[in-house]
Structure formats: C-alpha cells, structure tokens
Write a protein that binds this DNA or RNA. Structure first.
Length: 223
DNA sequence: GGCCAGGACACCA
DNA sequence: TGGTGTCATGGC
C-alpha cells in the first residue's frame, strides 16, 4: 500500500471513530499552563486522579505559572498527592517552571511559540518530560501539529494488526505524521478518539469486544 | 486484595 | 538498545 493508501486508511479509521463517538474537544483544561500541568500529572495515572489533584491545586491557589514557580517542592507534593508519584511530579513541575523562568524570563507564551522542532527538543531535555508529554504540550498547549502517541494509540493499532508489537514511540509517531495532513485539530481529535476507544474496548486484557474498528480492513504495517 | 491507569528514568548487561 | 525496577495514589 502506498502513502496515499495509508493516508486514506488512517483517515477512514479517524472518520469511523468520529462518527461513533463524536468530537472529544480535548484537552480538558482552561489555559495552556493547565494543559502542561495536566500533561505531567497524568503520566501513568488515571485522569480522575489528575482531576482531584488539579482541584486541590486550585484550592491552594496554585493555578498559574508564577504561583507554581514560587512554591517549594515540599509544599507542592502533598497538594498533588492524589495523582500518584507526587514527589517526582512535584519536582517535574518545578523543573519546568524553573526552566521557563530562567531561560525565557517567565514568558510562557514566547516559550510555546517556538518552532515545533525546537520546542519539542527543549521540552524533552527537561527532567520528567519524555516524548509523549512533550507532544501533548506541543499539540494541546502550543497548538503545534505534533501527533501524540500513548499507550492506547499503540494498543489499538497493535490489536488490529496494523503495527508490530515492538514499535518505538518515534516510529509510531512517524507513521501518523507521515501519512496524515499536519492539522492541529485533526491530531487533537485523533489522539482523543483513540484514548476514548481504548478506554472502552482496548484495556489490558487480550481482547477488544465491541470495538467499532473490529471489522475494519487491513492497513499496511508501520515500522 | 489485585489489577489498572492518557510515563519517565536510572541502572544494568 | 533492550529489559527491569522504581516511583504511588485511587477507582473498580
């Protein structure tokens, strides 16, 4: 299958999910900074626990960049306790704020306005920000066309035989980036829809029941 | 009480 | 470069 064929198939998968579930309107946050906080807090954590932590942050008056910049890790950690790994995540949030404070004079907007490649590599040099978190921030906070690959992206595509089990993050991301038009709205919805279908039909158990992609035809494998 | 959740990283061979 | 342990709470 050529590139045009793969693009067509990927778009068909997207249209099927969109038809079944409707637009998801992600990311569930009010501001770019809240997106960044959520992206770090949700690492290997159920979103419900992240919501508890973000509510606690609001109750403690810790919702803005400046407020998090000046709170200590020791004071921050117990506030985000419900999101799990709270000591690590407190350090990660502080490391991000310190970086923007020290290297961008606290100008978060300017930081996010960088070229995608620059932004992504700068994010990934920070403590606790790996490829998925960097892509989430680039796509949902900075509005750059960077496809987000998460556990559901891989699981859904692997279960349907569209990608091999051992496929690196960058290879799977490249599979989407190369085939799809670089459209921010498309990338947002596609990622959100894959999380939705993954939540409903593609958990860790080795089966996918009732998945709307069940009868979908083959795609050329990536990798 | 066990499994799982919108990862990242240090360490080791 | 690939495998493994660690970080940790909370819902089901």
């Amino acid at each position: 299958m050529n590139l045009a064929g793969r693009r067509s198939s990927l778009l068909q998968v997207y249209k099927t999910l969109l038809q079944v579930y409707g637009p998801q309107y992600w990311w569930p946050a009010e501001t770019p900074f809240e997106v960044i906080v959520g992206a770090i807090l949700t690492q290997n954590t159920a979103w419900k626990n992240v919501e508890k932590a973000t509510n606690a942050l609001r109750n403690h008056g810790l919702v803005s960049f400046q407020e998090l910049l000046h709170v200590s890790v020791e004071d921050l950690a117990p506030v985000i306790r419900s999101s799990g790994y709270y000591n690590q995540k407190a350090a990660k949030l502080k490391a991000f704020c310190a970086h923007v404070g020290n290297h961008w004079q606290g100008n978060l907007e300017a930081f996010l306005e960088q070229d995608l490649h620059q932004l992504r590599s700068e994010l990934m040099q920070l403590r606790g920000i790996g490829p998925e978190t960097a892509d989430s921030i680039a796509l949902y906070a900075a509005e750059k066309p960077s496809f987000v690959v998460d556990v559901y992206t891989h699981r859904v595509f692997f279960r349907h035989g569209w990608v091999p089990e051992q496929l690196s993050y960058d290879d799977l991301r490249g599979f989407f980036m190369d085939c799809l038009p670089r459209d921010v709205s498309l990338f947002k919805e596609y990622h959100a829809l894959l999380v939705r279908v993954g939540h409903l039909h593609c958990r860790r158990q080795p089966f996918c029941t009732g998945c709307p992609l069940e009868s979908f035809g083959p795609l050329q494998q990536a990798g």
